[in-house]
């Protein structure tokens, strides 16, 4: 029952989060309200486990998502009773709680001021620094968030999460080269993360269609990123989707055979034959995935519904173009 509560609930679909938070009252009742590490009773009662506290934390996040603020508060209280109010992680959790219950921007600004005072006292408080950046982002102060993130990354450049966040912020501002740089940093930390490869492919594609200089170079690299993501993860829907999109674009845009002098450092664009074969493979694979996952075949259920729908739409527009 609680096994899904042991993982951070960031990517749970809404119905699962709701289901989890509905278990909260029973779960909170079934566990003792206070556990002290030094009591005699710990000799015969079950020992406290790290899982319990993890459950509390994730339960709190799920509850905040579904609006069960009472249970969330109870989780927070118990965590505070165990770890003390000046624990860094708990400070961030409390800030998160306050952000969630804030009703308007004024209340959020107050939370932001609290973060600032905490950071003035102790600038090495990483959870609070991250919360502050997230709050700046949700207050739509993107430039400030980017500045703060850059500051944070200067002192902690091995933080993949922060680099990924920075890449998203830059992409939202249309600063694609910076975003690409940040995603490359993420890849340097986690070189086999296929979702990051695909994400980098997407950003490269966006940079290419935004009409910046060297769009063909971006497209070529984008294709290769998607290929790599497929290489790392079989039947990766996002990778095939991107591969189809980029190869199609490069094929249609390939009318003028202007082979500009390439710099030696960049890889050459694949030739048309390879591109066509890649496109065919991607199309075939996408239709297979769509067909099988819509039919609900065994082993093909894991795909996100919205992504399957998007892939279907892409295939349909393609089919319309051909029939014309």
């Amino acid at each position: 029952m609680t096994s899904s509560l042991l993982h951070p609930p960031a990517h749970l679909p809404p119905n699962v989060a709701l289901q989890l938070s509905q278990q909260a009252p029973t779960l909170l009742q079934s566990t003792p309200s206070a556990i002290s590490p030094y009591s005699l009773s710990s000799l015969w009662s079950a020992a406290e486990s790290a899982e319990l506290w993890m459950t509390y934390e994730n339960l709190m996040l799920s509850c905040l998502r579904t609006g069960d603020e009472q249970s969330a508060h109870q989780c927070l209280e118990r965590l505070t009773a165990r770890f003390g109010a000046d624990n860094e992680r708990l400070m961030a959790l409390r800030g998160l709680f306050q952000e969630a219950v804030a009703t308007d921007d004024a209340a959020l600004k107050q939370v932001l001021e609290e973060y600032d005072t905490i950071l003035k006292k102790d600038s090495s408080n990483i959870p609070i620094t991250k919360r502050r950046i997230a709050l700046l982002k949700s207050l739509k102060k993107t430039t400030e968030a980017i500045t703060a993130l850059n500051q944070f990354l200067d002192s902690s450049p091995s933080d993949a999460e922060a680099w990924a966040e920075l890449a998203d912020l830059y992409a939202s501002q249309g600063m694609y080269p910076q975003s690409i740089f940040a995603l490359e940093e993420v890849l340097l930390i986690t070189p086999y993360a296929w979702n990051i490869h695909a994400r980098l492919g997407e950003i490269l594609y966006m940079a290419a269609i935004s009409g910046e200089a060297g769009s063909e170079k971006y497209l070529a690299e984008s294709i290769r990123r998607f290929c790599r993501s497929i290489e790392l993860c079989d039947d990766y829907l996002r990778g095939y989707y991107g591969l189809k999109l980029t190869t199609a674009r490069l094929l249609t845009g390939r009318s003028q055979p202007s082979r500009q002098a390439k710099s030696d450092s960049a890889l050459a664009t694949p030739d048309s034959k390879t591109l066509e074969r890649l496109n065919e493979t991607a199309t075939a694979k996408l239709s297979e995935i769509v067909r099988r996952s819509v039919a609900g075949e065994a082993g093909w259920e894991g795909f996100t519904k919205s992504e399957v729908i998007a892939a279907k739409a892409l295939l349909e527009t393609d089919a319309v173009k051909i029939s014309r």
Binding site: R224, C227, I230, L267, E288
Partner: peptide, 14 residues
Amino acid sequence: LEGVEDRILNTVRV
């Protein structure tokens, strides 16, 4: 990423 497209074409069977 060098030659990844050929690797893909060789390994992925539809």
